[in-house]
């Protein structure tokens, strides 16, 4: 199963996004969060991101959803510290964090592979709000 990591500047956004995504799971998918700086401030904690990526099951891949600048930057940096094999299996999605996480939870729990999950959540229609 593809697993999911949510990285946000805000611990509340990360936790809330996870909660929303968990509701949609059709089967067991590991959804982890790295939110805030670890001391209650807004920001990102590279060490926490590293810890999560190292502890999560990466066999079928991990889809990462990140919000703003330093979340993306910290993730890219931490990814470079991992083995090449892991780097290939960990993908930052080009998708909005909430919509992306919810859809990723559905797709991953249906047993889709890493490429399929990414393709699903990177569709532009995910951003469409006026013609639901």
């Amino acid at each position: 199963m593809v697993n999911i990591l949510i990285i946000s500047h805000s611990e509340k956004i990360a936790e809330g996004t996870k909660e929303l995504a968990e509701e949609m799971k059709q089967a067991e998918v590991d959804i982890q969060v790295a939110g805030g700086t670890g001391d209650g401030q807004m920001g990102t904690d590279a060490d926490l991101i590293e810890k999560k990526l190292k502890s999560m099951d990466c066999q079928d891949g991990i889809v990462v959803l990140a919000d703003l600048g330093s979340a993306v930057m910290s993730f890219n940096m931490v990814k470079e510290w991992l083995s090449e094999d892991k780097q290939k299996k960990i993908k930052l999605a080009n998708a909005p964090i909430v919509e992306g996480a919810v859809l990723a939870a559905v797709e991953a729990s249906l047993g889709k592979n890493l490429e399929e999950v990414l393709a699903a959540i990177e569709k532009k229609s995910i951003l469409n709000k006026n013609n639901l």
């Binding site: 807004m42 920001g43 990102t44 590279a46 060490d47 330093s70 930057m73 890219n76 940096m77």
Partner: peptide, 14 residues
């Protein structure tokens, strides 16, 4: 890198 918490951490760190 470990303690700044904003983009300047990875930037100055790198």
């Amino acid at each position: 890198i470990s303690n700044v918490g904003g983009a300047s951490g990875p930037l100055y760190g790198t």
